[in-house]
Simulated scan of single mutants.
Amino acid sequence: MNPIAFNIFGLDIRWYGIFIATGMMVGIVLANFTSKLKNLNYDELLNITLISFPIAIIGARAYYVIFEFNQYKDNLIEVFNIRQGGLAIHGGIIFGMIAALIYTRYKKENLLEFADVAAPSIIIGQAIGRWGNFFNSEAHGGPVTQTFISKFPDFIQKGMLIDGVYYHPTFLYESIWNVIVCLLLIYLLSKTFKRGTVFFSYIGLYSLGRFFIEGLRTDSLMFAGIRVAQLISLTGIALWIIFLVINYKRKTLE
Rank of each mutant, 00 (worst) to 15 (best):
T49G: 05
Y16T: 00
G164D: 04
S150I: 07
K107R: 12
S121P: 00
F134G: 01
G225H: 12
F148H: 11
K36V: 07
I226G: 13
I232A: 12
F6S: 09
F211C: 14
L184F: 07
S220R: 09
F33M: 08
L111H: 02
S35Y: 04
K194I: 02
I213D: 00
Q126H: 09
V245F: 15
G159I: 09
R83S: 08
H90G: 03
G85L: 04
L87N: 04
L189R: 07
N39I: 10
T192N: 15
S220F: 10
L189C: 09
W240F: 15
I232L: 14
T22E: 07
Y16I: 00
S207T: 12
V165A: 07
W240A: 13
S137A: 11
T49D: 07
T104D: 02
S121R: 02
N39F: 08
L184K: 05
H90Q: 10
I203C: 11
A99F: 09
S175M: 05
A238L: 15
G196Q: 03
L231F: 15
A88W: 05
V117Y: 00
G85V: 02
F200Y: 07
Y72W: 08
I162L: 06
F243I: 09
F171C: 01
A21S: 11
N41D: 13
A88P: 11
N47Y: 08
D74C: 07
V198S: 02
L161M: 11
